[in-house]
Design a protein around this nucleic acid. Sequence first.
RNA 1: GGAGAAAUGGCCGAGUGGUUGAAGGCGCACGCUUGGAAAGCGUGUAUACUAUGUGAAAUGGUAUCGGGGGUUCGAAUCCCUUUUUCUCCGCCA
Length: 424
Amino acid sequence: MLTLKFIQENRAEVIEKLKVKNFDASAIVDQILQKDEERKQTQQNQDNILSQINSISKEIGILFKSGKADEANAAKEQTTHLKEEVKELSQNLALIETDLQKLLVQIPNIPHASVPPGKGEEDNVEIKSGGTIPELHENAKPHWELTKDFDIIDFELGVKITGAGFPVYKGKGARLQRALINFFLDENIKAGFSEIMPPLVVNEASGFGTGQLPDKEGQMYHVGVDNLYLIPTAEVPVTNIYRDVILQAKDFPVKNTAYSACFRREAGSYGKDVRGLNRLHQFDKVEIVALEHPEKSYAMLDKMVAHVETLIQKLGLPYRILRLCGGDISFTSALTYDFEVFSAAQDKWLEVSSVSNFESYQANRLKLRFKEDGQKKTQLAHTLNGSALALPRIVAAILENYQTPDGIKIPDVLVDYCGFDYIK
RNA sequence: GGAGAAAUGGCCGAGUGGUUGAAGGCGCACGCUUGGAAAGCGUGUAUACUAUGUGAAAUGGUAUCGGGGGUUCGAAUCCCUUUUUCUCCGCCA
């Protein structure tokens, strides 16, 4: 979330810039500013009274020590009405603070100046493309037929065991999966990210820290008995490593990568692009997460985008990079680049990565701060993350684009990881 | 799952109702000392909100001793609750 201070000092700018995200912040910003005034007033009153009580208490202590019990007992009575006042004020203050919090959480992150205006995905701006779209043979098939023909991914079996959207990877299909995970992790490590194996379930505080809670609650699987959530992305546990942490400026950049299974309920998205591997409830993804100094976070974003691009290039897939418009960018992001690969048999672009700079929006929720050398003041760090990469659609594109009349050719970089060069 | 013990600052560790944001030590920073270093000496060393205020600073108030709640004029200290850790028992990949 945005900091109160920022909203106070940049009221007009906040409202103006959020228009790019098609969000009218004016009413809510005013409510926030008003609530905060209330909060300050109430807290000042409370602090004053507490201060009085504290000093009376000290006196009482001294009186008792010097044997003046009578005077001490008399002093006690002074505090009774003060205590009542404090009780009321603190209850009030708690209410005001929850209200304020609820309001603050409703304001999306400010989009970066380069975010194009727009309503939806049709307004995203293509900034780069690469690779060549293959010419497929006559009998080319979409991946959901290929997976069946070669018996490498079994969707029906997943339905039996769990439900729709939980495929079972078999034989070379499973092996390809593992190969991709290892390939991505190794490449990320070479690019300076250090590997993390995080928990796959997180608590409420972590869900809040990265912005999934409270608003996207319905998108996560919830383990009710223990009040835990299955992670929708490794971003959640990995970024939360740094919740309530104060770094030194010299610690930057912090770069982590993690493979995890990801779980998404995808409530409300049935019926649209859900065939085969296009949209799953459980899928594998390798994530990169970076923490950076505010002055350097956009340079880091560029590096991350360039790195993700090399992964796709090494796999030999046709791709394009989009700068998301205000209508398509996420609530918490300031600037996002999406990567899409072209899946030839479906004749369709599939999103395989989303690389974002959240600036201090997540950091504020996380209380992730840093200190400049020798400075006492803390500042919020910037957080960034991206997929590098999400597997299912990469697999879909590999299967479709690399299919030949003789079977599916494995991209060169994966052959050693797979231990085979064709799926026949 | 059952029984017991514990949780204090960057770390170790004292502290069972009264000027305790918290002894002492370590670490760290700065200064003195030195040809330089070590040792020694001195000073400093949490976070948030807030008031006054500044070029920067500084000073005051409030809160925080795992989390939440309570008792009390006053809580690190007493009570309740919750989480985590350790030990023992049970179960188990």
